[in-house]
Design a protein around this nucleic acid. Structure first.
Lengths: 138, 138, 138, 138
DNA sequence: GTGGTCTAGACCACT
DNA sequence: GTGGTCTAGACCACC
């Protein structure tokens, strides 16, 4: 699979996994209805505890990104949107504030960040629309 | 003052602080020999526990990025590395990709994120300019 | 504390706890800002594992009913509403369907259930408005 | 047919089924000697695994509520207890209190819940009446 | 064999 | 001493 864990990073393992799974789905590498690796598969592959994977999948299910079916597996949700406009704005604002903070510390102009954001966004969109040339864009 | 803690982020407070201080030094905004805020200043300003700040400074000193001088304060070490523009862009690109991922999952347009980014950036800038009585400019 | 776990019940321990904590808050026995028992307290008192309590508190935080502060404790949230209208309706409809199902099986008219619902609702509301006579209404 | 499974509920499928069958018998809707649906019927109708139904019937037989006759089917046991009106109200009151609790946390008026309750009740009734070709009336 | 609950206990982040 | 992450492993519900 596609996940890399950096245990040296202070970011919790489960948070790293969530970010990367979200990315994989956003990029179209995994599409609605697709089955994700089983809890045990991911756990053994990443040499982490199954409970950690379980937590990740639980959180993703809470966010409406995947749905679990006992005895069957975990699947990418059919595009269900869960958060309302207000919550979305709040979440996004948090993220943007963090990014703005980094711009300041790195001494990079926000317009450059905006360019990069747009570029990355369209990369993701393009790769999710074309099922074939995924590998180029990762 | 430029440090902003995002409690919504899963990243621990101390890690956020370290990253931001490192970046500020890496960008050249803080130069070798510059004095950092005292433990007490930072703690009261960010409304966090002094022990947390102490830990951050201890860790930074351990990494050779700052050096403590008893009774004087904490200073940026002489050997502190400054990243070039390319390195900084690479770091920023990672963050922008994460943000783009969130945009897709939240179903929000990138232009909205760009607006928010700009808004948050200027908010941060304004708040740092208006606090002229800060003892230093970290 | 106020929680009773029935291990004979097929309902998971964590679900029983959530229901009862929600009830305690809804009834006003616990008010916004009040501190809940610590993870370890609840765990030892109910002779269950701290992780189970942690899961309960985590879920409640997800639902916006409590907020956690590291090193301080867990507190009843200040009345934050998280779900949007659509999600609320969905959740409530599920609950009503379950209740309707029980009415049918028990051979009780829905109007009787409606009466009981109204009665219980006002009991909760009354007990949350009057801080003094709580014990009577439990 | 009267059994409805609510997958959103944390209560396991088999437990929901057992409760509903017990209640139907307790209310006198199903009387001693009445025949229950076959395992296969119930499984296909509720789109669940036959093993789950098998387990439910096995458990009910173990509790002495039904008796299996090879080649004939499953029947309500002669000694099955019928609850009086008061017992049934007590059960229902518990559920109504839970629903009232949810109303408060969701910030929804009880009258809205009452509407939904009525709506769901009639939906269930209609669906059970329209399925005349069901082999029995559980 | 799949996801999910629960236990037991180590270790970390923060006050 | 607080909540939170992670591990290790048993057992259950469901397919």
């Amino acid at each position: 699979m596609f996940i890399k864990i950096n245990t040296a990073d202070a970011t919790p393992v489960y948070a790293q996994m969530m970010q990367q799974i979200k990315y994989t789905i956003a990029s179209g590498t995994l599409k609605p209805g697709d089955r994700l690796p089983t809890v045990r598969e991911l756990a053994t592959q990443l040499t982490i505890n199954p409970n950690t994977v379980l937590k990740v999948y639980g959180e993703l299910e809470h966010e409406g990104i995947v749905t679990a079916h006992k005895g069957k597996g975990i699947f990418v949700a059919e595009g269900a949107r869960v958060l309302n406009q207000q919550d979305r704005e709040k979440l996004l604002t948090d993220r943007c504030r963090s990014l703005a903070t980094e711009c300041i510390h790195l001494g990079v102009s926000p317009s450059r960040a905006q360019e990069l954001l747009e570029k990355e966004y369209h990369k993701l969109k393009d790769s999710s629309n074309s099922s074939k040339s995924d590998s180029n864009n990762l």
